[in-house]
Simulated assay, not measured.
Amino acid sequence: MDIYQFNKEVGKKVEKFNSDFIMSHIIQTQKPSRIGCMYLEKNGIIGYHEAVVPQLLLVVNGEGKVRGEKEEFVHVKNGDAVFWEKGEWHETRTDTGLTAIVIESKELNPASCMPLAEKKRI
């Protein structure tokens, strides 16, 4: 499990076309991808399961904790992106609620667009 960051602080200012915003790139794929949004309520859980393809979980609201195959949970919050390889067992939990975008594809390389968080590889 790797944890990356896509918050405003790691983005780049865009001024092209008279624009004024910050862009945090997340992923670029050549193969088909499935993108969804998950809403976990208070005490919500995405149960312990095996990733059938590489998965990237982008926390956009709230906070929670994630784990890979080790039983050690790591705190995540908005702006964190959690990456699991195909075949990696994992789980996500929240006490207060969490909203996340999930990207699944046979080809995901988040390191090509996002910096690794201080937590790095877990």
Rank of each mutant, 00 (worst) to 15 (best):
T94A: 11
E118F: 07
S24T: 09
V82G: 05
F17K: 12
K70W: 00
G36Q: 04
A51Y: 07
G87C: 11
K31G: 13
G36V: 08
T96E: 15
V82T: 11
Y39V: 09
S105T: 05
G36L: 08
M1H: 08
K42F: 06
M114E: 01
F83Y: 15
L40M: 15
G47M: 06
I27V: 07
V14Q: 02
I35T: 12
A81S: 05
V74H: 13
L98Y: 00
L116D: 00
F17N: 14
T94S: 15
G97T: 12
R34W: 00
A111T: 09
V14I: 15
G87W: 08
A100Q: 06
I122A: 11
L58R: 03
P54I: 13
G11F: 01
Y4Q: 05
N61C: 03
P32F: 04
S24Y: 02
I103T: 03
G68D: 06
G11L: 11
V82D: 00
L56V: 02
V76Q: 00
E107Y: 06
V82R: 00
S112N: 13
W84D: 01
W89V: 15
F73R: 07
L58G: 06
R34N: 05
Y4T: 04
K65W: 03
E91H: 07
A117D: 06
M114Q: 00
F83I: 13
K12F: 02
K70G: 13
I45H: 01
Q28S: 14
D20Q: 14
E91R: 09
H49R: 09
T92F: 10
V74T: 15
M1T: 11
F6H: 10
K106A: 15
A81R: 02
E91C: 13
T92H: 08
I26H: 01
Y39G: 06
N78V: 06
I101K: 02
K13G: 02
K8S: 15
I101Q: 06
E72C: 11
T92L: 14
I46P: 01
G79I: 04
M114R: 04
G79C: 06
V102K: 04
E9S: 13
M114V: 03
V82L: 07
F17E: 12
I26L: 07
G68Y: 02
K77G: 03
V82S: 08
G97K: 11
E9L: 08
E41T: 15
K13P: 03
H75A: 13
G87D: 11
T99N: 11
Y48N: 12
P115D: 03
V59A: 10
R93I: 15
K31R: 15
S33M: 14
I26M: 11
K86W: 01
K86L: 03
I3C: 10
M23H: 04
R67C: 07
R67F: 04
T29I: 01
K16N: 07
P32H: 05
P32G: 06
L116P: 02
H49V: 07
G11C: 08
M1R: 03
